[in-house]
Amino acid sequence: MLAVGNPDLAENVAVYVPGTTAQLDSIGGDIDRVANLYRRSEKYGSGSVATIMWLGYDAPDTIIKDASMDKYAERGAPDLLSFLNGLEVDQDKHVTALGHSYGSVVIGEGANQGDLRADEIIAVGSPGMHVGQAKDLDVGEDHVWIQKAEGDPVPALGRFVHGSSAGVGIPTLPLVPSDDGFGGTILSTDTHGHSDYWKAESVSLDNQAKVIMGGHETREVGDDPELAPRPMLYR
Protein backbone atom coordinates (compact mmCIF):
# COMPACT_ATOMS: atom_id res chain seq x y z
CA MET A 1 0.00 0.00 0.00
CA LEU A 2 1.17 3.52 -0.79
CA ALA A 3 -0.84 6.59 0.18
CA VAL A 4 -0.75 10.19 -0.98
CA GLY A 5 -2.19 12.23 1.87
CA ASN A 6 -3.14 10.85 5.26
CA PRO A 7 -5.89 8.20 5.01
CA ASP A 8 -6.35 8.18 8.77
CA LEU A 9 -7.30 11.85 8.85
CA ALA A 10 -8.80 12.41 5.39
CA GLU A 11 -12.54 12.80 5.01
CA ASN A 12 -12.44 11.41 1.46
CA VAL A 13 -10.35 8.33 0.68
CA ALA A 14 -9.89 6.64 -2.70
CA VAL A 15 -8.49 3.12 -2.93
CA TYR A 16 -7.04 2.47 -6.39
CA VAL A 17 -6.75 -1.22 -7.32
CA PRO A 18 -4.40 -1.71 -10.31
CA GLY A 19 -4.75 -4.42 -12.92
CA THR A 20 -2.74 -6.93 -14.90
CA THR A 21 1.08 -6.75 -14.74
CA ALA A 22 1.05 -4.52 -11.63
CA GLN A 23 4.10 -5.46 -9.58
CA LEU A 24 6.01 -3.72 -6.82
CA ASP A 25 9.19 -3.51 -8.90
CA SER A 26 7.39 -1.67 -11.72
CA ILE A 27 4.74 0.28 -9.85
CA GLY A 28 5.86 3.77 -10.86
CA GLY A 29 3.05 4.32 -13.34
CA ASP A 30 0.37 3.40 -10.82
CA ILE A 31 1.95 5.69 -8.22
CA ASP A 32 1.76 8.53 -10.75
CA ARG A 33 -1.94 7.80 -11.20
CA VAL A 34 -2.81 8.07 -7.52
CA ALA A 35 -0.67 11.20 -7.27
CA ASN A 36 -2.64 12.77 -10.13
CA LEU A 37 -5.87 11.71 -8.47
CA TYR A 38 -4.79 13.33 -5.24
CA ARG A 39 -3.76 16.60 -6.86
CA ARG A 40 -6.96 16.86 -8.86
CA SER A 41 -9.23 15.85 -5.97
CA GLU A 42 -7.50 18.28 -3.61
CA LYS A 43 -8.46 21.16 -5.92
CA TYR A 44 -12.08 20.09 -6.19
CA GLY A 45 -14.85 20.20 -3.60
CA SER A 46 -14.44 20.54 0.12
CA GLY A 47 -12.83 18.35 2.75
CA SER A 48 -9.50 16.60 2.94
CA VAL A 49 -8.50 13.72 0.68
CA ALA A 50 -6.09 10.79 0.49
CA THR A 51 -5.53 8.43 -2.41
CA ILE A 52 -4.16 4.93 -1.90
CA MET A 53 -2.47 2.61 -4.36
CA TRP A 54 -3.47 -0.82 -3.04
CA LEU A 55 -1.53 -3.79 -4.38
CA GLY A 56 -2.58 -6.23 -1.70
CA TYR A 57 -3.21 -9.01 -4.18
CA ASP A 58 -1.19 -11.05 -6.65
CA ALA A 59 -2.07 -9.35 -9.94
CA PRO A 60 -1.99 -11.39 -13.17
CA ASP A 61 1.46 -11.39 -14.74
CA THR A 62 0.43 -11.54 -18.39
CA ILE A 63 -2.54 -10.35 -20.41
CA ILE A 64 -3.19 -13.41 -22.55
CA LYS A 65 -2.31 -16.26 -20.19
CA ASP A 66 -3.16 -14.92 -16.74
CA ALA A 67 -5.68 -12.07 -17.05
CA SER A 68 -8.35 -14.51 -18.25
CA MET A 69 -8.22 -16.42 -14.96
CA ASP A 70 -10.58 -15.80 -12.05
CA LYS A 71 -8.21 -17.07 -9.39
CA TYR A 72 -6.34 -13.79 -8.93
CA ALA A 73 -9.57 -11.96 -8.14
CA GLU A 74 -10.95 -14.77 -6.01
CA ARG A 75 -7.78 -14.86 -3.90
CA GLY A 76 -7.40 -11.08 -3.70
CA ALA A 77 -11.00 -10.22 -2.80
CA PRO A 78 -10.82 -11.21 0.91
CA ASP A 79 -7.77 -9.01 1.44
CA LEU A 80 -9.47 -6.07 -0.28
CA LEU A 81 -12.57 -6.55 1.88
CA SER A 82 -10.42 -6.59 5.00
CA PHE A 83 -8.60 -3.43 3.92
CA LEU A 84 -11.82 -1.55 3.19
CA ASN A 85 -13.28 -2.70 6.50
CA GLY A 86 -10.32 -1.12 8.24
CA LEU A 87 -10.97 2.22 6.54
CA GLU A 88 -14.64 2.13 7.43
CA VAL A 89 -13.90 1.98 11.15
CA ASP A 90 -14.39 5.73 10.86
CA GLN A 91 -17.98 5.94 9.62
CA ASP A 92 -17.57 9.59 8.63
CA LYS A 93 -15.15 8.78 5.81
CA HIS A 94 -16.33 8.88 2.22
CA VAL A 95 -14.59 5.88 0.63
CA THR A 96 -14.26 5.21 -3.10
CA ALA A 97 -13.05 1.87 -4.46
CA LEU A 98 -11.53 2.48 -7.90
CA GLY A 99 -10.55 -0.46 -10.07
CA HIS A 100 -8.63 -0.27 -13.32
CA SER A 101 -8.96 -3.19 -15.71
CA TYR A 102 -8.44 -6.44 -13.72
CA GLY A 103 -8.55 -4.34 -10.55
CA SER A 104 -12.27 -3.85 -11.18
CA VAL A 105 -12.65 -7.64 -11.33
CA VAL A 106 -11.16 -7.83 -7.83
CA ILE A 107 -13.65 -5.23 -6.57
CA GLY A 108 -16.58 -7.08 -8.14
CA GLU A 109 -15.43 -10.38 -6.68
CA GLY A 110 -15.22 -8.65 -3.29
CA ALA A 111 -18.93 -7.82 -3.58
CA ASN A 112 -19.59 -11.46 -4.48
CA GLN A 113 -17.70 -12.81 -1.48
CA GLY A 114 -18.75 -10.34 1.20
CA ASP A 115 -19.93 -6.85 2.06
CA LEU A 116 -17.93 -4.29 0.11
CA ARG A 117 -17.52 -1.44 2.58
CA ALA A 118 -17.29 1.53 0.25
CA ASP A 119 -19.52 4.47 -0.61
CA GLU A 120 -18.63 4.67 -4.30
CA ILE A 121 -17.23 2.32 -6.93
CA ILE A 122 -15.47 3.48 -10.09
CA ALA A 123 -14.79 0.82 -12.74
CA VAL A 124 -12.30 2.02 -15.35
CA GLY A 125 -11.66 0.05 -18.54
CA SER A 126 -13.34 -2.95 -16.94
CA PRO A 127 -13.36 -6.42 -18.55
CA GLY A 128 -16.23 -7.42 -16.24
CA MET A 129 -16.84 -7.60 -12.51
CA HIS A 130 -18.30 -11.07 -11.93
CA VAL A 131 -21.71 -9.49 -11.33
CA GLY A 132 -24.47 -8.93 -13.87
CA GLN A 133 -25.62 -5.49 -12.79
CA ALA A 134 -24.46 -2.46 -10.83
CA LYS A 135 -27.11 -3.09 -8.16
CA ASP A 136 -25.19 -6.25 -7.16
CA LEU A 137 -22.11 -4.28 -6.04
CA ASP A 138 -23.29 -3.40 -2.48
CA VAL A 139 -23.09 0.39 -2.85
CA GLY A 140 -26.34 0.96 -4.78
CA GLU A 141 -26.37 1.50 -8.53
CA ASP A 142 -26.50 5.30 -8.10
CA HIS A 143 -23.02 5.05 -6.61
CA VAL A 144 -21.47 2.92 -9.35
CA TRP A 145 -19.52 4.92 -11.94
CA ILE A 146 -17.99 3.65 -15.16
CA GLN A 147 -15.42 4.92 -17.62
CA LYS A 148 -14.65 3.45 -21.02
CA ALA A 149 -12.49 5.55 -23.31
CA GLU A 150 -12.57 5.42 -27.07
CA GLY A 151 -10.03 2.92 -28.30
CA ASP A 152 -10.01 0.86 -25.10
CA PRO A 153 -10.33 -2.80 -26.21
CA VAL A 154 -10.39 -4.42 -22.77
CA PRO A 155 -14.16 -4.35 -22.05
CA ALA A 156 -14.90 -6.17 -25.32
CA LEU A 157 -12.03 -8.63 -24.88
CA GLY A 158 -12.97 -9.48 -21.30
CA ARG A 159 -16.70 -9.87 -21.78
CA PHE A 160 -16.76 -13.65 -22.15
CA VAL A 161 -14.26 -14.18 -19.35
CA HIS A 162 -15.21 -11.80 -16.54
CA GLY A 163 -18.60 -10.54 -17.70
CA SER A 164 -21.81 -11.89 -16.20
CA SER A 165 -25.42 -12.21 -17.33
CA ALA A 166 -28.04 -9.94 -15.81
CA GLY A 167 -30.01 -12.92 -14.52
CA VAL A 168 -33.24 -11.95 -16.27
CA GLY A 169 -34.27 -15.51 -17.04
CA ILE A 170 -33.37 -15.49 -20.72
CA PRO A 171 -29.96 -16.07 -22.33
CA THR A 172 -28.06 -12.82 -22.80
CA LEU A 173 -24.53 -11.81 -23.64
CA PRO A 174 -22.39 -11.42 -20.53
CA LEU A 175 -22.46 -7.80 -19.41
CA VAL A 176 -19.52 -5.59 -18.59
CA PRO A 177 -19.93 -2.29 -16.68
CA SER A 178 -19.84 -0.10 -19.81
CA ASP A 179 -22.91 -1.87 -21.26
CA ASP A 180 -26.20 0.02 -21.04
CA GLY A 181 -27.91 -2.92 -19.32
CA PHE A 182 -25.41 -3.00 -16.47
CA GLY A 183 -26.70 0.12 -14.75
CA GLY A 184 -24.63 2.66 -12.91
CA THR A 185 -23.55 5.95 -14.48
CA ILE A 186 -21.22 6.31 -17.44
CA LEU A 187 -18.77 9.15 -16.89
CA SER A 188 -17.48 11.04 -19.90
CA THR A 189 -13.88 10.58 -20.96
CA ASP A 190 -11.63 12.60 -23.25
CA THR A 191 -8.65 10.24 -23.17
CA HIS A 192 -7.90 7.41 -25.59
CA GLY A 193 -7.04 3.79 -25.05
CA HIS A 194 -6.67 1.72 -21.91
CA SER A 195 -4.00 3.54 -19.93
CA ASP A 196 -4.54 7.31 -20.10
CA TYR A 197 -7.59 7.78 -17.85
CA TRP A 198 -5.37 9.58 -15.31
CA LYS A 199 -3.83 12.06 -17.69
CA ALA A 200 -3.36 15.41 -15.94
CA GLU A 201 -5.98 18.06 -16.72
CA SER A 202 -8.22 15.58 -18.55
CA VAL A 203 -11.98 15.30 -18.19
CA SER A 204 -11.44 11.61 -17.43
CA LEU A 205 -9.41 12.53 -14.35
CA ASP A 206 -11.77 15.37 -13.38
CA ASN A 207 -14.71 13.01 -13.28
CA GLN A 208 -12.94 10.55 -11.01
CA ALA A 209 -12.02 13.41 -8.68
CA LYS A 210 -15.65 14.54 -8.53
CA VAL A 211 -16.78 11.09 -7.43
CA ILE A 212 -14.01 10.85 -4.84
CA MET A 213 -15.01 14.22 -3.37
CA GLY A 214 -18.74 13.50 -3.52
CA GLY A 215 -19.39 16.14 -6.16
CA HIS A 216 -21.39 14.09 -8.61
CA GLU A 217 -24.40 13.74 -6.35
CA THR A 218 -25.76 17.09 -7.55
CA ARG A 219 -25.61 15.96 -11.21
CA GLU A 220 -24.54 19.51 -12.10
CA VAL A 221 -21.71 20.37 -14.49
CA GLY A 222 -21.14 23.82 -13.05
CA ASP A 223 -20.94 22.94 -9.36
CA ASP A 224 -17.29 23.97 -9.28
CA PRO A 225 -16.04 27.06 -11.18
CA GLU A 226 -12.79 25.38 -12.14
CA LEU A 227 -14.62 22.49 -13.78
CA ALA A 228 -17.56 24.41 -15.26
CA PRO A 229 -15.96 25.04 -18.70
CA ARG A 230 -15.49 21.32 -19.23
CA PRO A 231 -17.76 19.37 -21.61
CA MET A 232 -20.93 17.72 -20.31
CA LEU A 233 -20.06 15.04 -17.79
CA TYR A 234 -22.80 12.55 -18.62
CA ARG A 235 -23.94 10.73 -21.69
Rank of each mutant, 00 (worst) to 15 (best):
V95P: 00
G45K: 06
P153F: 08
M53V: 03
Y38S: 05
G29N: 13
S82R: 13
E88S: 14
G47C: 13
I31A: 14
L24C: 02
L116S: 09
K65C: 00
D66M: 02
L84M: 14
E74A: 06
T96Q: 05
N36R: 13
P155M: 11
L87V: 09
A149H: 07
E120R: 15
G45E: 06
G99S: 13
K65I: 14
E74F: 03
A67Y: 06
T62D: 15
Q133I: 09
G132H: 05
G29R: 11
Q91L: 09
M53Y: 08
S48H: 13
H130P: 02
Y102N: 07
G29T: 09
A97P: 01
S82N: 12
D30M: 05
G86F: 00
S41R: 01
L98Y: 08
K71V: 13
E109H: 02
Q91S: 14
D25F: 10
A118F: 01
W145Q: 10
A97M: 03
N36I: 00
R33T: 08
M69N: 15
E141D: 14
E74L: 04
Q23A: 15
N36P: 03
A149W: 07
Q133F: 01
W145K: 10
I27N: 07
D66P: 06
Y44I: 14
K135I: 12
D136L: 08
I122L: 14
K148N: 07
S46H: 13
Q23C: 11
K93A: 00
L81S: 02
D136Q: 15
T62F: 10
A50P: 09
A149T: 04
E88I: 01
E141Y: 06
A156T: 14
D90E: 11
E42A: 15
P60D: 00
A149I: 05
D58N: 09
G114A: 03
R40C: 07
P155C: 11
V154W: 02
R40S: 10
G108W: 08
Q91W: 02
E141S: 14
L55S: 02
L98T: 05
V131T: 12
D32P: 01
Y57M: 04
R117S: 12
I27P: 01
Q133V: 12
D30N: 14
I63S: 05
V106N: 02
K135D: 15
R40A: 10
K93T: 06
L24T: 08
